[in-house]
Structure formats: C-alpha cells, structure tokens
Amino acid sequence: MKKRLIIKLIVVIAVLFFVDNSYAQNPVNWTSNQLVEPSALADTINAKKDLPVIISVGPGAVIPNSIHAGMASETAGLNRLKTQLKDLPKDRKIIIYCGCCPFEHCPNVRPAINVLKAMNFTNYYLLNLPDNIKKDWIDKGYPILESE
C-alpha cells in the first residue's frame, strides 16, 4: 500500500516537473521592442493620461487599472482574455503581465501573446517582469492596488 502511494507521488512530481519545464523550452513569442519597462508603465499610471489596456494573465491583478483575465495557461483564463479583447479596436495599446515567476518558466505570457496574435492585435506589449511581480514591480515601489 505504501509502495503504491510512493509510486503515485513520484509520478505526480515527475509530471509536474515536466509540465513546468516544458514551458522553459518554449521560445519567446515577443520581441525586445514589445517589452515595456515597469518604470515607464508606472509613470503612465501615475500621470493618469493615455492609459493603455492593462491585463493580468496570471494568478492575480496587482497593478492599478489592470483587468484580471485569469491564468492564460488555463482554458478559463484564455476564454476570459478573449472576451475582454473581443470589442477592442485591433490597434488599441494593450499591455499584458503575469509576474508569477521568471519569464523562462511562466506558463501564462506565451499563450496570452498567441491569443493577441491570433486575434490580429497590432499594438500589444508585455510588461518586462523578468523575475516576478514582487521583485520587478512591488519592491520598487510602483503603484499597486489597495487591498479592500
């Protein structure tokens, strides 16, 4: 009985390791010109002028004025993202972000960018959070949503 449980646990861990690392093997599907520096977005938010559509495609929205689509690695999150995008002009400036983990491991940004491409958006960007939302945004003192 214990042996079966241990084998099942090893299989689950192996599957999770493979799934997590399979995203690391995916090439980036954005260009360096599509990366928006956190300081630039923070300045735009603070100026409250010419705000882009800001969409969180990760586990939560922490940036003011951002819409939470949900995790783009999941069908429900992708469907919410598509719904949020469907009525926007194709040339509307859109910035997506996740920040759950380093880009090379992030399961959410690549699928979100694929949706933007498939829906023929032409003015989309990725917030440059190479490590995570805490280190690259929160710890730098950029604006965050206030807890209720």
Rank of each mutant, 00 (worst) to 15 (best):
N26W: 09
L116W: 11
F121Y: 13
M1N: 07
N79G: 07
N114H: 08
I10T: 00
S39G: 03
G58V: 14
V28W: 00
K2Q: 11
S22N: 03
S56V: 15
K48F: 10
V11M: 03
H105Q: 12
Y124M: 13
V62Y: 10
P143N: 05
L116F: 10
H105A: 12
N120G: 05
C101F: 10
P107S: 06
T75K: 02
L5A: 00
Y124W: 13
I13D: 00
N46Y: 08
I63S: 01
S66N: 03
I13N: 01
T83K: 09
I95H: 03
T31Q: 03
K135C: 03
A14P: 08
H105R: 15
K117R: 12
A112D: 09
K8C: 05
Q84L: 13
N114G: 10
I63A: 02
P27M: 11
L78Q: 14
P59Y: 10
A47Y: 04
L85Y: 03
A76Q: 15
S32F: 13
G77K: 11
M1A: 12
D87E: 13
L81N: 07
K2Y: 08
L81Q: 07
V53M: 03
R4P: 00
N123G: 09
A24Y: 11
S147C: 09
A72S: 15
N79V: 14
I94R: 08
P27G: 13
N33H: 13
N46S: 14
L35S: 04
T75P: 00
K82R: 15
A69T: 12
M1Y: 05
L78I: 14
I54H: 04
L145V: 10
V28Y: 01
K135E: 11
N65H: 13
I94V: 14
K86S: 06
S39T: 11
V19W: 09
K135F: 03
L16W: 02
R80C: 04
I13T: 09
L88C: 06
T122I: 05
V12K: 02
E146R: 07
S73P: 06
N33D: 15
